[in-house]
Design a protein around this nucleic acid. Structure first.
Lengths: 184, 184
DNA sequence: ACCTGAACACCGTTCAAGT
DNA sequence: ACCTGAACACCGTTCAAGT
């Protein structure tokens, strides 16, 4: 099975960027791992940024699909649940939350890079949909927490746990955020 | 009121590091803002890292105080509430969540820098105390979410809101995480 | 089409030297 | 004690040149 140089660059870059950080990873490092020169990378990509954009594209597209679907549904508990479930599926897709974890790790980059801003826009849109587009501060924060439950289930649980279980825990905790409480 | 060069370096660095990212901010930039040369910074600090350590120290010390206090208390709802309240006070201290926001923004740096690892350790300890040192995955995630409610109240609420109100919303939402629910 | 070698301006860091 | 100027190796990026 032969993989294109372009594909191999993307894979190695994603791994190193996520593990050691975007800025701390040099193109020399990536090139060396692939047995080519730094300059070779510039044949396949216009810039270091563009490597990130390239492996972010399909994830962004998938998020767009999820958002479009949610917008076509009537607001309410059911939409919130299904939206979060789809988001979690996407987050844990391909057995490792690779691209999503890259953005989580490289918050700084999100601010300046175009792909980062694209991801940020989507996250805010999902959060807003989770809050049923309501402006109440409490509901906005609750929506953000529900989203964060998915991300947090990846690193906030200390013991080894299969992905399916992590997803289950995340969705359970998130669902609780909207369940009515016994008044004090 | 004359401020020491050392202090001015710290202030400018904190601002730029938080706003534009640690890696994207060059020492030349900092030096220029202060009207000195790059090399002058090395008279006051051993390295770029050390600037971060220097302005992190008192925050870390304050977190240690909070952690020590919590460890002296019996576990339970009351401890969790008071612990989070103190954490929120610390987070919003000095009118701008400056140092805490730096660490939030520079996740990548947290992994490699010593000050970052110090902050990470404290956060995990607080999260663990919030979960009453219980190992149940659901409780661990809930504890992380409660902590995140404080951080999230800073950026997840779209409208302008005074700090006191943000804190209130954060603590309310966090408290809800442990309130018993009406069974389905 | 795919890649190299050499050059560019810029980065963090060091150090001898100045006051 | 406090700071400068010049140098170091390394970075992302460009480009003419090779196959």
């Amino acid at each position: 099975m032969v993989e294109s140089t372009r594909g191999r660059i993307q894979a190695v870059a994603l791994e190193l960027f996520t593990e050691n950080g975007y800025e701390k990873t040099s193109l020399r490092e990536i090139a060396e791992r692939l047995g080519v020169t730094k300059a070779a990378l510039y044949y396949h990509f216009k810039s270091k940024d563009e490597i990130v954009s390239s492996f972010s594209e399909d994830r962004l597209a998938r998020l767009d699909e999820i958002i479009e679907w949610a917008e076509s549904q009537p607001p309410g508990l059911e939409r919130r649940q299904e939206l979060l479930a789809r988001y979690a599926d996407e987050f844990f897709a391909s057995n490792h939350p690779s691209v999503m974890r890259f953005f989580e790790q490289n918050q700084t980059v999100v601010k300046t890079m175009s792909a980062g801003m694209g991801m940020r826009d989507r996250m805010l849109r999902v959060a807003s949909l989770m809050a049923d587009d309501v402006d109440d501060p409490t509901e906005q924060l609750r929506a953000a927490l529900a989203l964060f439950a998915v991300h947090g289930s990846w690193f906030a649980i200390r013991q080894e746990l299969p992905i399916e279980e992590r997803k289950r825990v995340a969705l359970d905790v998130a669902e609780d955020l909207w369940r009515p409480r016994i008044s004090p």
